[in-house]
């Protein structure tokens, strides 16, 4: 596929590689236009995988990979994709990339594959990926689309990692499987079973959204 050979698309001479506008494309989704907390997309996987840090990290990396390359592919093809079948085309591209991630995990990180393959498959239905393809990559140049995908994927990644941090810490008393409380000398830390269930993710997510909206002053219109 031509996507692989064109990872560094030509940049217009007038605009710097990381101009102010482009920095904003990356930075906005991290906070003020965050896909999870503001656009409220990708909630299902934010609830499902975030019981522990390690699978969450793998999930975050997989989503970044899928988003960046699907945006690149769709953006490169944007003038040839027939508008009547564009949703199917987007789905096909995403599904192919997700299957590739799954195959690579199976070959090189079998333990992770066993733990995560269900959720990796669900990246296909992650609204953030298709949302950005539909809203941005279809109408913008490849480089900008990649930046937009990267920004949104990172915005997704930091939120799920933050949720996983609190859920694993409070729910199992661990981080990346490491027994934190034993290490600092607190024996019998009362772990909170609620945190291991999706309810815990809702609570943590709610608190993050609350804190964020208080700081940015965002209100629903």
């Amino acid at each position: 596929m031509s996507a692989e050979t064109a990872t560094t698309p030509a940049v217009k001479q007038e605009e710097a590689l990381l101009s102010k506008r482009r920095k904003k494309i990356i930075a906005d989704p991290l906070n003020e236009d965050n896909p999870i907390t503001i656009q409220v997309l990708g909630i299902c996987s934010a609830l499902a995988v975030t019981t522990q840090m390690k699978p969450t990290l793998t999930m975050a990396v997989s989503v970044i990979f899928v988003m960046v390359f699907s945006s690149l592919a769709i953006s490169l093809l944007r003038n040839t994709i027939p508008s009547r079948v564009r949703i199917i085309v987007q789905l096909a591209v995403i599904a192919t990339l997700v299957s590739l991630v799954n195959e690579v995990l199976k070959a090189f990180a079998f333990d992770m594959y066993k733990q995560l393959s269900v959720f990796v498959g669900l990246i296909i239905t992650n609204c953030i990926v298709m949302g950005r393809l539909e809203a941005y990559a279809l109408g913008n140049k490849p480089y900008d689309s990649v930046l937009d995908a990267l920004g949104n994927a990172l915005g997704y990644a930091w939120i799920i990692l933050a949720v996983a941090f609190f859920r694993e810490l409070l729910g199992s008393g661990r981080l990346f499987g490491f027994h934190v409380f034993e290490a600092i000398g607190v024996q019998n830390f009362p772990t909170n079973g609620l945190m291991v269930t999706p309810v815990g993710a809702f609570i943590i997510l709610g608190i993050i959204i609350w804190v964020q909206r208080t700081k940015t002053g965002y209100v629903e219109h």
């Binding site: 596929m1 994709i81 079948v85 085309v89």
Partner: peptide, 28 residues
């Protein structure tokens, strides 16, 4: 367009599957 897209994506997946199969079998 859809036929070409299907062939390209399908080919890509088959290629990955064939190339990675020995490593996957060893992993299993």
């Amino acid at each position: 367009f859809t036929v070409i897209l299907t062939i390209v994506l399908g080919g890509l997946l088959s290629l990955a599957s064939v190339l990675l199969r020995p490593i996957q079998q060893k992993s299993v």
